[in-house]
Design a protein around this nucleic acid. Structure first.
Lengths: 122, 122
DNA sequence: TTTATATGAAACCAAATGGTTTCGCAATCA
DNA sequence: TGATTGCGAAACCATTTGGTTTCATATAAA
């Protein structure tokens, strides 16, 4: 199951900014194509093609209702991305550890990259 | 800082499987181009081009040593990806919550989105 | 039954992408 | 001083990508 065999994988699907915007939009509501396209400066057909790419990657699900097709987010495939990222998290954590050491050891300020705070530890 | 202005952003950089493999490889060691290319079925020049894309996205850092150029992973830009993902995590967590509720309350009409079978009844 | 709406399919196009081969140039080795 | 190695730049190529416009079809509304 979840045989993401298709020609479009998640990584490729989210590479395009329009498609990323589509995903956000469809996370809020299930929407028909025409309504969706109103949020974009490109043609309805172009949006439709993006939607197909997303569908092939399993990121949206379509449902026909009368003459319209409604699309909605299907977030599951993003797990793959999360998994992939996880591996690298290891490395930035190492960096953060190094940074923490550095900060603790004295010296001035170091623009904490991203961390809110926490890990004051000890 | 981190003004990811360049023409290649992280999302696009990781869209290509070869580049993803490159990132993993370079997470282990800093390596010169020729050594790197030995891990790939494509030409050294092609690898070099991929490396440039990654560099533009800030995902690798190059260092010249004598006649060779060594590349290593620079994981920071992946934060952007993580942030982006985080938004959607909300949704799959909701799904899990919904699922939990469903299972707990054993109602039938909810149409378990993705799970083909299992826990369909009680 | 006509007419209008919603959408996908097709054909087409320019630009980007992922490759290749050839070439030039610095840096090291004999 | 050559000769060799490591690498990027350039030119080139086929395919993919992100768009467009036009057309066909199914459903809904008059």
């Amino acid at each position: 199951m979840a045989a993401s065999s298709a020609k479009h994988d998640v990584f490729q699907a989210i590479a395009d900014p329009t498609r990323r915007k589509l995903l956000k939009l469809l996370s809020k509501d299930e929407m028909p194509v025409t309504a969706i396209s109103e949020h974009f400066p490109i043609s309805r057909t172009a949006v439709s093609k993006h939607l197909r790419v997303l569908a092939e990657a399993g990121l949206v699900k379509e449902r026909k209702i009368g003459r319209e097709t409604r699309y909605k987010l299907e977030p599951d495939p993003l797990f793959e991305l999360k998994d992939w990222l996880q591996y690298f998290e290891l490395f930035w954590e190492n960096k953060l550890s190094a940074l923490r050491l550095f900060v603790e050891s004295d010296v001035k300020e170091v623009e904490p990259l991203h961390l809110t705070k926490e890990k004051s530890e000890k």
